[in-house]
């Protein structure tokens, strides 16, 4: 199997994590360092092993980009709108309250994803009612109220 260039990112990320954790561990009291050092050494060793595997694969079978495989059928606009929507929703929940933000989030996202209006309305109502009874009434969880409800 060819070496994938995208895997370089995995290796770099794992080495960066090792570096950060190693530095953090050196700041701890000596008595608390053993186990974090063990985890750093383990991840470092395995990442290095993977790097060696990658280099062997590159020498034997060549190198491929890997981007096509990782991002096959990727719809960037749709993905980033959804991602931004989810992030905005989490912020909104604590500001305007759970139920209001849920209605807004679900309606906007479903209409963006071209769900017919009737289906959108039914889904929004059913899920909110379900959550209200399951969490608020049955489990007694007080969902974030925010500045509205």
């Amino acid at each position: 199997m060819k070496m994938k260039k995208t895997d370089i990112g995995v290796v770099v990320f794992m080495y960066a994590m090792c570096g950060y954790w190693y530095y953090g561990t050196t700041q701890l009291k000596e008595s608390s360092r053993t186990y974090p050092y063990f985890t750093v050494a383990l991840l470092f060793g395995l990442t290095t092993l993977y790097l060696v595997q990658m280099l062997v694969a590159a020498k034997k079978h060549g190198v491929t980009s890997g981007v096509d495989e990782v991002f096959k059928d990727f719809k960037p606009a749709q993905f980033f709108v959804c991602l931004a929507g989810v992030a905005a929703y989490v912020v909104l929940v604590s500001v305007v309250g759970f139920f209001v933000s849920t209605v807004v989030f679900m309606t906007v996202l479903m209409l963006y994803l071209r769900v017919p209006v009737l289906y959108t309305a039914i889904t929004v109502v059913v899920l909110n009612v379900l959550i209200y009874f399951a969490f608020t009434r049955f489990l007694g969880v007080r969902l974030p109220a925010g500045i509205l409800i």
Partner: peptide, 30 residues
């Protein structure tokens, strides 16, 4: 999937919030 995406997101948020009733748990989940 257009219906599943927002529904599962909402359930993820409410589920992680319900643990300690802390919005920071939702951030960790995200």
């Amino acid at each position: 999937d257009a219906i599943l995406i927002p529904c599962v997101t909402v359930l993820c948020v409410v589920g992680s919030y319900a643990i300690h009733r802390n919005i920071l748990d939702v951030v960790v989940m995200l």
